[in-house]
Amino acid sequence: MLDILATKDLNFRYGSQTALDGLEVEVPECSLFGLLGPNGSGKTTFFKIISTLLQPSSGTCHVAGVEVSKNPARVRQQLGVVFQQPALDLALSVRDNLRLHGALYGLKGHLLDDRITQSLQQLGLLERATDRCRSLSGGLLRRADLARSILHRPKLLLLDEPTNGLDPVARHAFWGFIHELRQRYQITVLVATHLMEEAEKCDELAILNQGKVVCRGTPEGLKSTLGSDTLWITASDPETLATLLQEKMGWRVKQFGKALCVWHHAPDSLLTPLYRDFGASILSASIRKPTLEDVFLTHTGNLFDPNPSIGV
């Protein structure tokens, strides 16, 4: 399968600060690809480079085979972007906004009018077409912004934390529309998020930390790297307990905030010795399957042990 987006050794520096540090990502055509990373991990910088707003300090970035810094105009034609803040003029109606954006892509006349009506219909906004954007709810505004971003039928759609600030119902509806659009137009979607629920929906994920891809794979594949079950402990003094568990019991322990995570091939066998020896300092202990959040924290979190060897 062809890669619609491919970067090689992509670097970007703001002054002395390194925002992207040899980033390598390949996004296959028609996939839903997730970029998962904490704030400041370089997601937004990466998006700005893809959308030709910033020039990389070094390295290459190809969109549909076109190098972004060599031919930005071609890349822009292929690209739709939903920003963290809707790129709509709140004083204008939904339809006027779409007309304005169509004009920026050189669309006009019947073609533009048909596209607008079609987009509004697909996104369930037809009745609100003449309402000013200011009067729309957050969820509807996002949808209007989505309609805007696909008006020129892009091949690659970038979503930068697209459901930021939406309630769960609106978020669910938004993703419903994304799936519909993907099926209809074979759009490749690259979504930057820090919501695990959204990451779960992706075909493939890359976890970003400090401008690098620290791991990538399918959501299931990533979770399975943490083993089948892990033991989670909350304690009043997690630092001390972690040290004790590592030194006295020889367990593989990592601290996330107040919680400790223990990897073991048979975690249920750990419960008895745990309560017998450390019962007084434990608030709770449970065994569960690893979640994406665990994967995320393992690779990006505030590490107790900076270089844990993960695995069973």
């Binding site: 690209l79 972007v81 920003f83 709509l88 954006h101 920026l104 892509y105 050189g106 805007r148």
Partner: peptide, 16 residues
């Protein structure tokens, strides 16, 4: 405001 959080951010990535 619009260059960062509104209409202009989309205008800047349009091929125009």
């Amino acid at each position: 405001e619009e260059k960062r959080s509104g209409f202009f951010q989309a205008a800047l990535i349009a091929p125009v």
